[in-house]
Structures are given as structure tokens and as C-alpha cells.
Design a protein around this nucleic acid. Structure first.
Lengths: 202, 202
DNA sequence: GTCTATATCCAGATAGAC
DNA sequence: GTCTATCTGGATATAGAC
């Protein structure tokens, strides 16, 4: 019966999703080690044993989360780069989208925070860390190229492009933390304040 | 013999300091929960049992660290506010000092990161978190007042001062993370890029 | 003050019934 | 697929010798 098979697959995928969603929030808020499988179990209503049916360990859950996050971000960055817009417009769009993302869904902020933590700490699974170090810089490259392009346009300030890129992502990470900490109470600042860092006029 | 008493006190203080210094780095890099007392023991060469002679628990070590950090930052902020300088000059000085601090001593970055983590996560001792929420905002107040003052001067951009304050500390936190992650490889960006966010000209 | 040895606890992961 | 019960390891914190 293909019907049942499909239905089963749906349930299975649903469970896996549920687990990831709960783990994302828990990992971001409590950290990987402080999050107990029992926390995930409590949050999802899925028994502890069953979680191990879907993922072979807590770290595997974490690895999936990181893969998801990095891939989403890279896809977004590469799509931005391909748009038929000026460098200046791309930068405005990037800042807009990121702020809107944080504002509308805390999960976006959690993703950023998780990646930062994993990059920082040796306590996180090596697999996830390797993946981050090999893949995460793709989005740095995109922004860096857009800055350089914008400098040729004359719209982007003439500071060192690499430094501006560092600052771009440091600021974004800082805002992600701010949002992750304060949740609904966090109001994202006016994008124009940020744009002042990078653009001559807008 | 007061001589011995003093000497003993010195040793005692030295040990306590050693433990704090090791814990700062470990907590920042691995997280509170992932850091084992045995890690602190290995890093300091102080036996596990002896650590409990100086601090009654791992969390107490953490609480001391947070107190130190918050107090240092508040003192610095309040002193900045009292200086006989224009608002514009104070902002330039604050950014300079913070960047220099991160550049010269990773520990400064670790302090920032630790506070941010503790504020974020329920996994950290409630005592430390309460202290942060009651005291940490002092430095936010200082910067906020300086921005407002600078707007009257005409030197600070006329965006919402609270939003600029949020952005100021988000950026600083982001840079602290960047430094904590990349250590000696992290080069702090040109302060002028940051100052563009807040100042009309400089 | 300092160390080594150990009691105690608790979380991750597994086994096995349904 | 799902649950409950349990094994096992490892970390905190303590006890007690020096």
C-alpha cells in the first residue's frame, strides 16, 4: 500500500521537524550541553526513547540544525548576489531582509546565534564546526564582493572592504543575540542607522 | 605571626585569581555546563578538590566572574560620562577604547560574551542573571544619555537615541564574539566605519 | 592548604515489551 | 513506531589523609 507508506513518511518527517524545531530553541537558549534530551522530549511530547529512533544522538540533531541553517543562509546570499540590482540596492535589501527576518521570527535569530556559538566553542561537534568553517564563509564572500562592486559604483564608502564585511556580520550577529535574548520585547532598529556604516548616501 | 598571615592571604588571593582567569576563558569558549571542574583543574594545575576549597561550586565561580565583568564595565562607562569632553568626543573615545580592549586582550571580549550568554540563557545561575539585569543596563543608560546630549550639540545623527544605543551595544557584542572566536587572527575594523553610524561628521 | 579516593547523582543511550 | 525501564559512564562535590 503506497498510501500508507506515504502517510508514514509524512508522520516521520513531521516528527523529525518537530524535534528540530524544539531543539533549535532549546540549544539557542540553553546551549547544547545544558539541553537535556528530556527537555526536547518534554517540549515535543515525544518520548525520550523515540527521539533516539529518529536521531542517533543529541549531536546528530545539532548537526542537522547547523546544516539547515548554513544552507539557508548561503542560498539567500547567493540569490541576492544574482539579482539584477546595483550594489547599493543589494546592500539595502540585505539589511532590510535580515532585520525583517529577526523581527518576524525569533528562529532566524536563533539560527545565527547557534552558528556563532558552534564556531566559537570546541564543545560543539566537530562535524558541525568543520561544516561551518568550510561553508559559512560563502556569505562573507558574497557581501565582500558586493562591497567592492559598490566602491566601483561610488555608492559604498571607501574603507577596507574586508573590514566592512566583518563589521556587517558582527552587527548582524549582535542584533541576532539581542533578539534571541529579548524576544518579542526586542525592536529592530531603523535600517538607515546601519546603512550609514556602508553607504555614502541612500 | 602577621607576616605569615599576609603571605597566606596573598597565596589565597592568587589562587582565586588563577581559578577565575582559567574559568573565564573556559566558560567563554566551551560554555558553563560543558566546562568541567577537571578542565579548570587541568588548566590551573590546581587539584579538583582544592578548587572546592576556594569556591563552593562551579556556579559560584561563574557568579564572581559576572560581578567582576559588570562592575568593570559600569565603572568604565560612568567614568567616561564624567570626563570634561563633548558628546562627540566621548563617543569617539568609547569606540576607540572598546576596540583597543578587544584587540589587546581577548579576555575583554570573553567578558562581553559571557554576559551576553548569561543574559540569554536560563541555564545560567539565577543570581548572575539577576545581577546582570539589574546592573548591566547602567552602561546602556550612559551611552543613551551621551547620544541625546550629542543630538543637542548637533554632532550625533538624529535617529532615535534608544535605537542607536541598541545598535551600539549590538555591534560591540558582535565584535566581541568575532574576537572571541578568532582570537589573534581577528583584526578589529577601522573605528571610523562604526562612527559613521552615530556621528554626522568627525 | 593540598592532595587522592570515593560517594552520589543524573543524563545519554539502549533494550525490549507492546 | 512508540513507550517504559534500565544500564552505564562521567561529573560534581565530599571525606579524609598528609
Amino acid at each position: 500500500m503506497p498510501r500508507n507508506k506515504e502517510a508514514n513518511q509524512k508522520v516521520k518527517d513531521g516528527r523529525r521537524e518537530q524535534i528540530l524545531a524544539a531543539a533549535l530553541e532549546l540549544f539557542a537558549r540553553k546551549g547544547l550541553v545544558a539541553t537535556r534530551i528530556s527537555d526536547i522530549s518534554a517540549k515535543t511530547g515525544i518520548s525520550q526513547g523515540l527521539i533516539y529512533h529518529y536521531y542517533k544522538s543529541k549531536e546528530e540533531v545539532f548537526n542537522w540544525l547547523i546544516r539547515d541553517a548554513v544552507e539557508k543562509m548561503n542560498t539567500a546570499a547567493l540569490e541576492l548576489e544574482k539579482l539584477p540590482l546595483s550594489a547599493k540596492e543589494k546592500i539595502v535589501l540585505a539589511v532590510e531582509q535580515l532585520l525583517k527576518g529577526f523581527d518576524q521570527k525569533v528562529e532566524t535569530a536563533y539560527y545565527y546565534f547557534l552558528i556563532t556559538q558552534a564556531a566559537l566553542s570546541e564543545a560543539f561537534p566537530q562535524e558541525a564546526r568543520d561544516f561551518i568553517f568550510s561553508q559559512n564563509n560563502i556569505k562573507y564572500g558574497v557581501i565582500n564582493r558586493i562591497f567592492i562592486h559598490g566602491q566601483k559604483e561610488g555608492t559604498v564608502r571607501s574603507f577596507d572592504a574586508a573590514e566592512m564585511t566583518t563589521l556587517f556580520f558582527s552587527t548582524i550577529n549582535g542584533l541576532a543575540m539581542y533578539k534571541a535574548i529579548n524576544g518579542a520585547n526586542a525592536k529592530m532598529p531603523d535600517k538607515r542607522i546601519i546603512l550609514n556604516m556602508f553607504l555614502n548616501e541612500f
